Simulated scan of single mutants.
Amino acid sequence: MDTTLPGPGPHWRPRAVVFDCDGVLMDTESAWARVQAQVAESFGVTLDERAGTSLMGLSAADVARDISRRAAAVAEQRGEPAPGFDAVYERLVRTEEDVVGEVLEPLPGAIETVRACAQRVPVAVASNSTRGILDRKMHAIGLADVVVTWVSAQDVPRGKPAPDIYEEAARRLGVEPADALAVEDSPAGTAAAVAAGLWVLGVPHGHDEPITSHFRAESLADPAVGDMLRVWGLPL
């Protein structure tokens, strides 16, 4: 069940907006899930639905740690050497480059919403993607010209659900976290933004996993987003 937190006062207006990427701006999460399953299988691990859900929204490093832990247990049962973290991480990143690169299309409402916000306040993207993949994504969907900065999981000590990525995004934009709006879809992402002190618009886009946010819409194509932006002085 989703959790709605108390929002800011009626006169609050965002001085910056920070968007998640996967599941908010583009539909790459299903491809990322295929990457995880493919890499896990290559190390003798089968990810069931529950395991896949637990990895949703995590960074490549955190996913690699989980898969390497599972692979070590399999290897021990077989009496084989366990694969190290580095081997799993490198294969995960290489596979992601091949698979995710095929599906770099924006989600409905994404381009319009980002560009509307960017006309009035600085905009950033905060993603658990690796730096190289995030660069490709930003240029592929045509937002690199209006987004001030994008922060990857490789730019901070810890990925989501830790607050580091959102703290760094606010720092780069020159605003206090409490003056910024985060737009997120996953439990890990909303937890990261809330922990960093941003106000959070949750857009689960049909996901069943519960999220915690201050505001809620189904996606960036939801008319409720336009209504909120108009109230905040960021009309579409």
Rank of each mutant, 00 (worst) to 15 (best):
P210G: 02
E112D: 03
P8G: 10
S219Y: 13
R172I: 10
A73K: 13
R136H: 11
P83G: 08
S68Q: 02
L143I: 12
A193S: 02
A178R: 03
F19M: 09
S68M: 07
A33G: 14
A40D: 14
I111W: 02
D48A: 01
Q154E: 15
R131C: 05
R158D: 14
D2C: 00
A61G: 09
G84C: 02
A40V: 08
D155M: 14
I165H: 03
A75V: 07
R171F: 10
R171Y: 06
C21A: 11
V114N: 13
H11E: 12
L25C: 13
W199F: 15
A16S: 05
P106G: 05
A16P: 10
V24W: 12
S68V: 05
I133C: 00
P235Q: 06
N128P: 00
Q119E: 15
K137S: 09
A144C: 03
L104V: 08
L173W: 02
E29C: 12
R34P: 07
V121F: 08
V17R: 12
T46S: 14
D222Y: 07
G233H: 04
V39F: 15
L220I: 05
P8N: 07
D145N: 10
D227P: 02
A126T: 04
E96W: 15
R78W: 01
H214F: 12
D164W: 02
V123H: 06
R120M: 01
G9W: 08
G101L: 09
E105D: 09
R15Q: 11
T190E: 04
I133Q: 00
A224D: 14
A180K: 05
V63Y: 12
V225K: 09
D22M: 02
P163I: 04
V39I: 10
D66P: 03
V88D: 00
A73G: 10
D179W: 04
E167N: 04
A191Y: 03
V225Q: 04
G109K: 08
E102D: 10
A37V: 10
A61D: 13
A110F: 02
M1A: 07
V24N: 13
I111S: 04
V203M: 11
T95R: 13
P157N: 12
P163G: 11
G44Y: 03
E29P: 03
R50K: 06
D208L: 15
T149D: 09
D86N: 02
H11F: 11
A116K: 03
R94G: 08
R120K: 09
R13Q: 14
A75N: 09
M138T: 12
A31R: 08
G23K: 13
V183A: 08
R69Q: 06
G52E: 15
A61T: 10
P235R: 09
P81Q: 11
R120D: 02
G197V: 11
G101A: 01
T4M: 02
A140M: 05
V35K: 01
V17W: 11
G79S: 09
A64K: 01
T4D: 00
I133M: 03
H214P: 04
Q77L: 10
M138N: 04
M26E: 13
V24K: 11
I211F: 09
L234Y: 12
L181G: 03
F19I: 01
V18G: 06
V93Q: 01
H205R: 13
A87V: 13
M228A: 06
D135C: 09
F215P: 00
G132V: 14
W150V: 14
D27L: 12
E105I: 05
F43R: 00
